[in-house]
Nucleic acid binder design. Sequence first.
DNA 1: ATGAAAGCGCTAACAT
DNA 2: ATGTTAGCGCTTTCAT
Lengths: 337, 337
Amino acid sequence: MAKPERHATITDVAALAGVSVGTASKALNGRGSLREETRVRVREAARTLKFEVNAGARSLHSGRTYTVGMITTDSIGRFSIPVMLGAEDALGAGQMSVFLCDGRDDPIREQYYVKTLLSRRVDGIIVTGRRAQSRAPIGVGLPVPVVYAFISSTDPGDCSVVPDEAGGTRKAIDHLTAIGRTKIVHITGPEHHHSAQVRSASTQERLAELGLEPAAAPLFGAWSEAWGRQAVGILLTGGADFDAVFCGSDQIARGVVDALRAAGRRVPRDVAVVGFDNWDVMAEAAQPPLTSIDMNLEGLGRTAADMLLAAINGNPSSGRQLCPCHLVIRESTSVTP
Amino acid sequence: MAKPERHATITDVAALAGVSVGTASKALNGRGSLREETRVRVREAARTLKFEVNAGARSLHSGRTYTVGMITTDSIGRFSIPVMLGAEDALGAGQMSVFLCDGRDDPIREQYYVKTLLSRRVDGIIVTGRRAQSRAPIGVGLPVPVVYAFISSTDPGDCSVVPDEAGGTRKAIDHLTAIGRTKIVHITGPEHHHSAQVRSASTQERLAELGLEPAAAPLFGAWSEAWGRQAVGILLTGGADFDAVFCGSDQIARGVVDALRAAGRRVPRDVAVVGFDNWDVMAEAAQPPLTSIDMNLEGLGRTAADMLLAAINGNPSSGRQLCPCHLVIRESTSVTP
DNA sequence: ATGAAAGCGCTAACAT
DNA sequence: ATGTTAGCGCTTTCAT
């Protein structure tokens, strides 16, 4: 098990095959016109020496590194991961590698990473984050294209791919009304949180469009099960009359169904419940399992990567691109499983 | 907002500063002896042109890329992510960047990635995965050091950093006995799963060492809440007499506490429960919150990265390095919160 | 203190 | 069909 201390170079290969480096290059890349016999001999030599072309040296010519950078501005979390996976997926198919950088909510660190990526001559950059909010661009006039995924840039000239949370909210409300619910209440996260704002505003808006009154004012709290339980307590002690709850997250929804059950309300018969995120671990383990809105983050990551590839190939887009959310129906809104 | 289509080169900088490229290089890297005035002028020029050194060209000389590859053999999951974060953390501090590759359980894909990484001349490779199991090495006689993290290599000559699951199990059992429990039962995941085997074997072993009989044979099932609930049903209908449950995962533990509560058993008074993984989302939201074993995966990732850095700098290690697990106490084993 | 030039590994244009 | 050579961006002797 010899451990080659040095990577073989094309010169080594050429020498072993008894040809010039130019010929070796042509043989290995299938260029020029060579005798088949020569091609084979060179390839043989390359294999013997475990030759792997030096990508850095190669990109000195091509100007391309077939590498993209991925920066999470606030640290890597539950939402940025599927986005990253989707992007990695789309890029991998195009033979591109991904540089991962975790910004950790630190602007200094972030700028350092931008420099590092530029220094490494990535062909493009994807920026993502934990929360779907807009943020200042990571740089202006950068020499490579940038696509924001999940989070968006405040500069409308930048390209951002974001989930259509308002559309997702409409789907949730429409689903609840479709199964005959009219007294709907909304329980969600912190009032200052962008997603909580969008989802609650869209809820009120959609209810109004449908000619319905909310069964209670939206309840803002935390993105936690504990808050979901607590909110139900508030509603019940307040004597609210409701037959459905649309929750800002699956964790809240899980707290809600637990509290409702504990209070003797049947889900979905007495109260139907819809969550948000379609986080399998929560949605499937809840009793009953939760109907939820899926932001399709992996698809979003793929889309972002595809748009980045297009930009790299000279077809840039700009503006906010909305990715549709979809409804996943489970037992918390349907009597027959 | 001019968009520089081309990256500035050191030649551009030299020209603008009115010096030779050699001088420019020295000025930017603080080498050689130059007049301070010249240094300043060159740095000025570099800033004006937004010059970022071409890392690829540079590593042509140094032979180092200050980049490591990270391969997850089975796709990126809940366990590999903290490992990756820890590694990214430790490496970032050393100015190294990380290439992320998702093997997706596909050996072909995996080998392709190994080649890609070698071609990109990474200084080293970290291999990780979803499950703590040993696997065939990703290659033999590779020209760069490799460290396995969380998963381990079957080749004892390779360097692997893995959690001490047996030790963690002992801590769980010792904790339960310390609070006076003697009738302990173990509920865990699939019998064929490596971690389930290790944890259940260690449980039996530790109980024996303490002179205790298990309150029931270990129950193997799935890593899910549903299985936790079901297992409790089995125990109760079987009339088992137990005052503590050690679970193979927090998800199982959560199902267990829910089912116990539903059956009128008080946790921890009647039955104490310990989980495994210390997955905040599960452990903290459970009622009561779960005492759990934490594998400290981020620390494990950091350790792995540090060992890789050492290897890169000529101090390789080999063999399996065990990382300690620790006990996190919450209400499921303590009456006073 | 500064410049000129060689060379890192590779590709592509040009010779032979 | 194959070899030779220039040059990609940079660092590093070696001259000056």
